[in-house]
């Protein structure tokens, strides 16, 4: 009897399938009427938590800052979906936000590009932004943004080489790709330019989230003689915990990590996505929905080296850092990236 019931349910489902296939679907046109008084509405999809002190937080903080700049909730509103590390769920979220008529939908993760490529053509009146990349797929309603993370990496590398007494630096990366790879290359270039004899040991943990792998990598670097560490991705908080206990110096990137260990964090490359966000918003309000890619760097203020005020940075080191920043800004320092 029960088996019959299952078969019955299964048949019903097949019927539902066929019906769904025959049924007319509504592709949900993004009904977007731009009354001037309406607040600008942004939806953002983030791969990790908004408080990861790294990649996702950098975007969340930027949105909060832009909201403030624009004059609060009456002028700009934003919603978010965090922890969207499942690419598939992120795609559903992007499509859903698009059908709700948001003015700008930000897919803040390089893994979301493929989904965006599918979705954006269905919503020609909605603007999308994808980071971190330079690829807009040639679509008129897609912006791309990325960070020249090697620039801040270079400056951090310069300071690290100056501060190291042992002549060994340790770098902890997640997977050798994208933003992380660029930062690490910049860091090595900066360190070597400052002290050609310096040793830079690099480990990749194979994960963006494995905090204990990052911690053990830090321990290993310290045992191998490193007295200055840096690293990128949200897992590095584990490494900072170890650096704090072992009293070795730390350089941060993506967000300001000074609060985690005020005694040992020297400086951070902090992303200020608001620089590109305000440009995008301005363009959208003037009717240009995409087709352009942006890069934050030291020169345009999208990347800022934040020195930890509680760390007593020797003046000559700070000067070397400022010189490096100037050099990168005026183009006299060029950072070669691996092809």
């Amino acid at each position: 009897m029960r088996k019959k019931l299952y078969v019955f349910v299964a048949v019903l489902l097949v019927a539902a399938f066929v019906l769904a296939a025959c049924g007319k679907s509504t592709p949900a046109p993004a009904a977007k009427t731009e009354a001037p008084k309406k607040p600008f509405r942004i939806a953002v999809v983030l791969p990790s938590s908004i408080n990861d002190l790294a990649f996702s937080q950098s975007m969340y903080d930027a949105l909060v800052a832009v909201q403030k700049q624009m004059g609060g909730k009456d002028a700009m509103q934003f919603v978010y979906s965090d922890g969207m590390y499942k690419v598939d769920d992120a795609a559903a979220a992007i499509r859903d936000y698009a059908s709700q008529g948001y003015d700008l939908i930000i897919a803040h993760g390089s893994q979301y590009g493929s989904s965006l490529q599918e979705i954006a053509p269905d919503f020609p009146n909605t603007s999308f932004a994808w980071g971190t990349t330079v690829d807009t797929f040639g679509m008129p309603n897609v912006f791309a943004y990325e960070a020249a993370s090697e620039q801040g990496g270079y400056v951090n590398g310069v300071m690290a080489a100056k501060l190291s007494k042992s002549g060994v630096l340790g770098v902890i990366g997640p997977i050798e790709t994208g933003d992380a790879s660029r930062y690490v290359q910049g860091f090595i270039a900066g360190a070597k330019a400052t002290n050609p004899n310096i040793k830079v040991n690099v480990t990749w943990t194979g994960s963006f989230s494995d905090v204990s792998a990052a911690a053990e990598a830090a321990n290993t670097h310290i045992s191998a003689g490193a007295d200055v560490l840096t690293g990128t991705a949200q897992m590095v908080v584990g490494a900072i915990g170890v650096a704090k206990e072992k009293n070795v110096l730390w350089f941060g990137t993506q967000a300001d990590q000074s609060s985690l260990a005020p005694n040992i964090v020297v400086a951070n490359q902090v992303y200020h996505w608001e620089v590109v966000l305000t440009k995008m918003i301005d363009m959208i309000q003037h009717g240009k929905l995409g087709g352009q890619s942006f890069t934050i760097n030291l020169k345009n203020g999208g990347e800022v080296i934040e020195y930890n005020p509680k760390f007593n940075l020797p003046p000559d080191v700070k000067k070397a850092a400022e010189d490096a920043i100037k050099g990168i800004e005026d183009g006299s320092i060029k950072i070669e990236l691996k092809k």
Partner: peptide
């Protein structure tokens, strides 16, 4: 042993498969 022994921090999914 992880959060107050070896790492001194907490973060989401910090055990990541352990």
């Amino acid at each position: 042993a992880l959060s107050i022994g070896l790492l001194n921090v907490f973060q989401q999914n910090m055990t990541s498969g352990m």
